Amino acid sequence: MDSTHAQSFGDNPIEVRETDHYKHEYIEGIADKWDELIDWDTRAKNEGDFFISALKERGVKKVLDVSTGTGFHSVRLLKAGFEVVSVDGSADMLAKAFENARKHGYILRTVLADWRFLNRDVHGEYDAIICLGNSFTHLFKERDRRKALAEYYAMLKHDGLLVLDQRNYDTILDHGYSSKHIYHYCGENVTAEPEHVDEGLTRFKYSFPDGSEFHLNMFPLRKNYLRRLMKEVGFQKIETYGDFQETYHEAEPDFFTHVAEKRYVPDLEEEQN
């Protein structure tokens, strides 16, 4: 992908509903602005140790971060003592992540890879895979979602863990958009909000204090639909948290986080019923 400061969506941006288009969205310009959107210090404070604790409680040591972006969670996990391999489909985001890790005193092990072909490009088995930052919603076709989840499943050890998050698209679709602007995009004077929503597309606009704007086209995944896909791929037990809380009202969270276990438990479905 050529680095450029101009995103390309063609003449009708809301008709751009292809998984591969993310390569034209995560350009050098947005990679340079992404940390301003996140605000690492504020996000770390508000997020707390949710992910670190979830992994440590289950004995995780080796983590594959399949949507590292600019490296926020990879660096946090390295600081916490995990062994981390960081993957992204955007060379510009990976370059920024590597640079950020060096600033924090770490050398990031990076791999440029598409989730649908993860086993081809990334080697080894992992105790846990994390797919964070609402990244999974860049997959527009169900076959792409199933393929990616199957790749995650195959790369996990027999008792491995998948941690995957998503925006609360159910509320966006059914009741309109709102955000507490606390847990995920914490930058001051930065906005991230949808300018188009339908059942097949949520087009977000990201606006920065210097007047720059970027867009991302994403598929609005409903929570229970994604949970069903994970179960059908083979994940046995799935716990879903709303803004890192175990108990929540469906419409309130900005984000859902799914913690899915691969470990096979005989008669689990009967036990849960």
Score class of each variant (00 low, 15 high):
272 Q>R: 15
169 Y>L: 03
7 Q>P: 13
174 D>Y: 01
264 Y>G: 11
190 V>W: 12
24 H>M: 09
139 L>H: 02
249 H>L: 15
106 Y>A: 01
54 A>M: 01
150 A>I: 04
50 F>L: 01
174 D>R: 03
92 D>E: 09
32 D>M: 12
9 F>C: 09
84 V>M: 05
141 K>R: 15
12 N>L: 04
172 I>S: 00
169 Y>T: 01
205 K>V: 09
142 E>H: 13
89 G>F: 09
234 G>V: 06
88 D>K: 07
261 E>W: 10
100 N>M: 02
175 H>V: 04
223 K>W: 10
196 H>G: 03
169 Y>N: 09
5 H>Y: 15
22 Y>P: 00
21 H>W: 08
57 E>F: 10
196 H>N: 04
40 W>R: 14
138 H>C: 04
154 A>N: 14
205 K>R: 11
135 S>E: 02
10 G>N: 08
33 K>N: 02
83 E>C: 09
271 E>P: 10
43 R>Q: 13
251 A>T: 05
154 A>V: 14
135 S>K: 02
171 T>R: 15
65 D>Y: 02
187 G>L: 03
264 Y>E: 14
65 D>C: 08
56 K>R: 10
131 C>Q: 06
117 F>P: 07
201 L>K: 08
252 E>A: 11
256 F>Q: 07
213 E>Y: 05
47 E>F: 02
142 E>Q: 13
259 V>H: 02
103 K>Y: 08
